[in-house]
Computed example of a mutant assay.
Amino acid sequence: MTRRRGLFITLDGPSGVGKSTTVEALRRELTERGMAVRQTLEPSTSKLGIFTRENANDIHGHALACLVTADRYAHVEHEVKPPLDAGETVICDRYVASTLVLQRLDGVSLGFLLALNADVLMPDLAVILTASSGLIAKRIAERGIRHRFHRDPAAPGREVDLYAEAAQALVARNVKVLVLDTSDVPASDIASRIADALPDAPVASAISPTPTPPQGS
């Protein structure tokens, strides 16, 4: 029989754009549409992911880029591929697009980051959420600074521009990208748009019955 692999969906975007809220809304939307959904995030919840998250304000540049990507490779192997192969849809909060932005804010070149992620599993749909830099700056100010990048008042505008470049870089690598402006749009509506844009689930493998050994063998 033929087994259909689940869909891999990633959500990225500037801090304060509503990623976590949208991820949860998308999980509900897809579940209501009858899909089995697995939700995850990066950095992951593994020991490596926790170390990366806890030390991201102290480790900079190429070293942090390598840590983030190392966690990604392990995350895909242990937490993303198994449910995909079982036919589940996986939604990941932050993925390659975030690396192509945050690590560039940290002084790492786009070419280095693309090479570092060259063998990473690419999503069936990469969603990039955006909003005006003024709205993003307002949301960050309201919730408080959580990362060293937020101390730069120009960071929201730079993030918006770099995410647009990240979208182009992914499209150039044949990744389906959906860019959505979340300004004044309910998360439930954003989730519906994402669900409507999903491609058909790819065929993972053709599974043949175990052959019966010939008599007398």
Rank of each mutant, 00 (worst) to 15 (best):
Ile59Ala: 06
Val203Met: 12
His78Arg: 14
Glu77Asn: 10
Leu102Ile: 09
Val68Pro: 00
Pro209Leu: 10
Val68His: 06
Cys92Leu: 07
Glu54Thr: 13
Leu67Asn: 02
Arg158Glu: 03
Leu198Trp: 09
Arg143Tyr: 11
Gly34Asp: 02
Arg173Trp: 12
Ile145Ala: 05
Gly107Gln: 08
Arg33Pro: 05
Val177Asn: 00
Leu11Ile: 15
Cys92Phe: 03
His78Asn: 14
Ile140Glu: 04
Val96Glu: 04
Asn117Tyr: 11
Ala70Trp: 01
Thr21Arg: 12
Gly16Met: 01
Ala97Asp: 11
Pro153Cys: 03
Asn117Ile: 14
Arg104Phe: 09
Ser98Phe: 07
Asp58Gly: 15
Glu32Met: 01
Asp12Met: 06
Thr31His: 09
His75Leu: 11
Met122Ser: 08
Arg148Cys: 04
Ala164Asp: 11
Pro43Asn: 09
Leu30Val: 07
Leu48Asn: 00
Ser183Gln: 15
Glu142Leu: 12
Gly61Cys: 04
Glu24His: 15
Val127Pro: 07
Glu54Ser: 14
Leu162Gln: 06
Ser109Trp: 05
Leu198His: 08
Asp12Cys: 09
Asn57His: 14
Ala197Val: 00
Val80Asp: 12
Arg4Thr: 10
Ala164Arg: 15
Ser44Lys: 08
Leu41Gln: 15
Asp184Trp: 05
Ile136Cys: 03
Ile136Ala: 06
Ile207Val: 15
Leu121Ile: 15
Ser15Glu: 13
Pro214Glu: 10
Leu116Ser: 00
Thr182Phe: 13
Arg28Glu: 13
Asn117Trp: 10
Leu64Gly: 13
Arg146Phe: 11
Ile136Gln: 05
Pro214Ser: 08
Leu7Arg: 11
Val175Met: 03
Arg158Phe: 00
Asp152Leu: 04
Ala154Ile: 02
Arg173Ser: 07
Leu64Ser: 14
Pro213Cys: 02
Ser109Met: 06
Val101Thr: 10
Thr45Lys: 13
Cys92Trp: 02
Lys47Tyr: 11
Leu170Phe: 07
Ala115His: 09
Lys176Ser: 12
Gly87Tyr: 00
Ile194Pro: 00
Asp85Gly: 08
Tyr95Gly: 01
Ser44Asn: 09
Met122Leu: 13
Leu100Trp: 03
Leu129Asp: 00
Ala36Cys: 06
Gln215Ala: 12
Leu41Arg: 15
Gly61Ile: 05
Pro209Asn: 07
Ala204Gly: 15
Asp181Cys: 03
Ala169Leu: 12
Gly34Thr: 01
His78Ser: 15
Phe112Cys: 05
Ser20Arg: 14
Thr210Gln: 02
Thr31Pro: 01
Thr99Arg: 13
Ile140Met: 11
Ala65Cys: 00
Val37Lys: 00
